[in-house]
């Protein structure tokens, strides 16, 4: 994709980085303003820590507890990754099958859309029962189900919503169904898939943390947050929440990066300039 860079067009990657920096600045400023206001309000009105600890207190709790929190995060991250990967793979496979059979694709996707509206995370205690409170499978399971439905619905949409003109072109070339799938439907579905993966990566974090709230191995992030909150050590609980948020953000970032690498052609990547 950098091959065209020498021809008087802005290089994509550099342009992207510059753009990100320019867009990132207002966000950073806004975040700092909010943090400052938060600190000020807590200190001025002497807000008790069970309502809201000051950012500085959360920061120092984070520093104190860093090794504990990081080691707790390791289990949580593996559950998130396992859930994300299994949910996506299952979603993609079912989407591939469903899109091959036009009769069933409508009803199946309709049901999937409805299920997708349900608060799947509410299954957390059930999954803990099924797979055991301390098992990785119960956490990854909830995350997997949460990821599965948006991936299924989006990928199937991408496979099915192909431009009629593109289909007609392939038909005029006497392309076989397999070729239409590989050369047209799959690439067409990639942007849809990545939208679902970006959403799914944050859903997976929510699924795992919430399931851990309902019990889990003692060294898991969700368990840590729930314990600290009940002790009550609110600054420590908030430090855990902060790390959980960063985890969600990091997952989202990884997906966005993958998207950039795998589909440099897409408007969401090149921003439609040039």
């Amino acid at each position: 994709m950098t091959a065209h860079a020498g021809r008087g067009r802005p290089m994509l990657v550099a342009g992207g980085a510059w753009d990100t920096a320019r867009r990132g600045l207002p966000v950073t400023v806004t975040a700092l303003v909010i943090l400052g206001a938060w600190q000020l309000v807590v200190r001025l009105f002497d807000v008790p820590s069970f309502i809201l600890p000051a950012p500085t207190d959360i920061a120092s709790a984070l520093v104190d507890q860093l090794t504990t929190i990081l080691s707790a995060s390791r289990l949580t991250v593996s559950a998130v990754l396992l859930g994300l990967v299994s949910g996506s793979v299952a979603g993609i496979l079912v989407a591939l099958v469903v899109s091959r059979f036009h009769r069933i694709s409508g009803p199946v996707l309709g049901v999937a859309v409805i299920v997708n509206c349900a608060p799947i995370v509410a299954l957390a205690p059930i999954f803990n029962n099924w797979f055991g409170v301390t098992s990785l499978a119960s956490k990854a399971g909830v995350a997997g189900v949460m990821v599965f439905f948006p991936v299924l619905v989006n990928t199937a949409r991408g496979l099915l919503q192909v431009a009629p003109l593109h289909l007609e072109l392939m038909e005029s070339l006497a392309a076989r169904p397999r070729q239409i799938s590989l050369m047209l439907r799959l690439p067409n579905a990639l942007p849809y898939l990545f939208n679902a993966l970006k959403l799914g990566s944050t859903l997976a974090v929510i699924g795992v943390i919430v399931t851990e709230y309902f019990g889990g191995p003692s060294n898991a992030l969700g368990v840590y947050i729930a314990q600290q909150a009940s002790l009550p050590r609110f600054a420590e609980a908030w430090a855990g929440i902060l790390v959980a948020s960063l985890l969600g953000l990091a997952m989202f970032g990884v997906m966005s990066l993958l998207e950039r690498l795998l589909m440099p052609w897409h408007e969401s990547v090149h921003g439609g300039e040039a």
Binding site: S172, L173, M183, L184, N188, W265, H266
Partner: peptide, 28 residues
């Protein structure tokens, strides 16, 4: 493949480079 077809819209595959668009009929 005795004929080629051009439509009102170019209908290029946006995920393919120009070269890979042109070679599509050959690839098929």
């Amino acid at each position: 493949r005795d004929y080629g077809m051009v439509f009102q819209q170019a209908g290029l595959f946006e995920w393919r480079s120009v070269q890979r668009n042109v070679e599509l009929p050959l690839q098929v």
